[in-house]
Design a protein around this nucleic acid. Structure first.
Lengths: 384, 384
DNA sequence: CATCGCGCTTAAAACGATTCAATAAACCGA
DNA sequence: TCGGTTTATTGAATCGTTTTAAGCGCGATG
């Protein structure tokens, strides 16, 4: 069984091909397989595989052979079939990226960071969006398992999520990293900002500006970020002897919608104003909350920052573009995406070499970004 | 006894097992193959395949058999290996989603729409971000081809992109749809908003509010949206006898960065103000441009909307949250994502049945969203 | 002279599914 | 009893790779 030469693989590279509005497979010969390359170059598929992958055995292959094979591959426009390759080698070179809610502006920079790092490492991201729903989360996980992703990254910013379901991944020895979320116990790796330091930065900034009557909108109870941010605030307050006025402290309700922070910020601020509370500055849980607060203040005729300073947290894209632009505590979101990829990449190679890998908990440093929404306390209302 | 994701047959969940920071494959027997199911149920792999896929032949399979096989599959926690399946059936059930620049807030809702529709149809999105760079665009396309995506969606909002490289997809009979971009000639399907109608809506709104001295910031020349929006504006103007003051018309420079609209809007507005131009309203090319303009106006002490109304285009997420919130022409972005998926899905089934498929050009209707940044012209400055 | 090593290449067995042609059993009318 | 359907199941080929162990020709070694 050795036909002289393949009959099909003539790909006519004439470009002057006009198809007005309809497409049609030009033929089946369009798929160039490794065998074609083998035949064209006069070597066996095995050799072709070894050369093209630069496998260990390639060191024994004669340079002339390599050249011929590479040439043939190029000429035929050979493109390896990822599925076939994966089937044999068990390596899909893809990573599941699960977003709890893609709608959150928080996600976008993270996603870019993830995509970028994965791209550098020649991994492809398979995207899934849980829409904040547990069943979608689980079904998507299922899908990712079927596709044999080599790792999983969960961007779990604003969420509940019973990450118990991640157990299956551990069981299958698939590295998992979460961003913006953490689990008690060393079950999965995580990347988060140092929320406590962030909380501290926010209050420190306002305190330095001379603000003493400061209102707070704390994050929802179920959010993991809420507590440490508040803790950072409290610690700083007591360190400088600042007494937090509890009547100026409010808290966002638990809500699934990421943009609920905006509404919450708006409503809580309105309530404070209605109660005739006096404050010269407000620390919001995150940027959207801050924007909501600003909206309420503006609506009440209070100018930001002239009469009241507002600080946010996160530094999402809109913060720089709102008027006034928002002073905020920046999370290095894109970097966090990169970090998560590093973590799972390390996990993948470890798992490849049948080593154990360590669960790591990265904490990135927040950074104060001073913009227009805060300024030194005005004389008229500085002290009571 | 029915955990969310069916658990392993007999992994003892001994709780006394503390893995302080390390994971380990519990064994190799973890992969349940179809043969395992066959063996467990007492039938052949062929039958198992037929039953589990509900293939045509399944109509001949005895109900009892089906039940046994399904039971066995469930009990073993069988999960089909997507790669193996794809290798044989030639169907990857994945779609390439190429973003020219994920950073653009324009992308997010589209992405959600795409993901959602794909999810419904049991397709997985493989994500790629071109970072506005041609070489990345091409390399990513290459990657998608290797992975044998069944279709491609390109979200090409703010871009140049020589979509010539899409030719390979056509050659391989892979349906392609673009969102926010269109190519001359019927080479690829596209989904876009009706920009002309949108332009009309914007001006009509301001005109109705009594504005007559209106400034315009047109979109960059190379952007496909720019011309039709402007055309819509012009058409409406002439239809009501409104004379556009050319000295109030500016244009954004060609820039790659999606957020360059903000800077551009800011700068151009500042220039207008420096030239002491009088206008009571401003129509910006898009929302970011509008926010930039508002920033400039605010900085110059001009209140929006009291002294100057501003209208945007797109209705990206921040528009509702800025202060003042932005009156804008809404693009149904999420819907556009859905539409694109419909288009390529139709293409896929056609290609499956070896039929030709038609290249379609969907045009969605824009919608005026009236918020706080526009209001009736004030008496003081209505007429010159 | 047999044996070995060396340098280069390949045959053939996986990988885990799908699919088609083939078979076996059961039923049915003549 | 026999051919002919219909029902129910399966053997074996196949998809396009990777990988392991082996093959081959040949000069060197013992």
């Amino acid at each position: 069984m050795s036909p002289p030469l393949q009959s099909e693989p003539k790909v006519p590279d004439d470009a002057g091909h006009r198809d007005g509005g309809v497409k049609r497979a030009s033929s089946k010969g369009i798929t160039v397989t490794m065998r074609d390359v083998a035949q064209a170059s006069g070597f066996s598929p095995a050799t072709v595989s070894i050369v093209l992958n630069n496998a260990p055995l390639a060191q024994y292959i004669a340079p002339a052979t390599k050249k011929k094979i590479e040439e043939a591959a190029r000429k035929l426009g050979y493109r390896p079939n990822a599925m076939a390759r994966f089937l044999r080698s068990k390596r899909t070179h893809s990573v599941g990226v699960m977003l709890i809610d893609i709608t959150d502006p928080f996600c976008t920079p993270i996603l870019r960071g993830i995509e970028n790092s994965l791209y550098q490492a020649s991994y492809a991201p398979i995207l899934a969006d849980a829409h904040n729903q547990k069943n979608r989360f689980e079904r998507a996980l299922e899908m990712l398992l079927e596709r044999h992703v080599e790792a999983l990254i969960v961007v779990a910013n604003w969420t509940f999520v019973d990450i118990h379901v991640l157990a299956d991944f551990n069981k299958r020895n698939i590295p998992v990293a979460t961003i913006g979320w953490d689990l008690p116990g060393d079950t999965v790796s995580s990347v988060m900002v140092d929320n406590e330091a962030g909380g501290r930065l926010a209050l420190e900034h306002l305190h330095k500006l001379g603000h003493r009557k400061i209102a707070f909108i704390r994050g929802p109870r179920m959010l993991i970020d809420s507590a440490p941010r508040w803790k950072g605030i409290q610690k700083f307050a007591s360190s400088v002897g600042h007494e937090i006025d509890q009547t100026l402290v409010t808290q966002l309700p638990d809500g699934l919608d990421p943009s609920s922070g905006f509404d919450g910020g708006f409503r809580l601020t309105e309530e404070l104003l209605q109660k005739r509370k006096k404050f010269t500055a407000l620390v919001a849980f995150d940027d959207l909350t801050a924007l909501g607060a600003i909206r309420a203040l503006t609506k009440a005729g209070i100018k930001v920052p002239d009469q009241c300073s507002v600080a946010g947290f996160d530094d999402v894209a809109l913060s720089a573009m709102s008027s006034p632009s928002l002073t905020t505590v920046r999370q290095p979101l894109e970097t966090m995406g990169n970090l998560a990829v590093n973590v799972i990449l390390e996990g993948i190679t470890a798992s490849q070499e049948k080593r154990d890998w360590t669960i790591s908990h990265q904490r990135t440093s927040p950074e104060l970004v001073i913009r227009e929404s805060t300024r030194a306390v005005s004389l008229s209302s500085s002290d009571d």
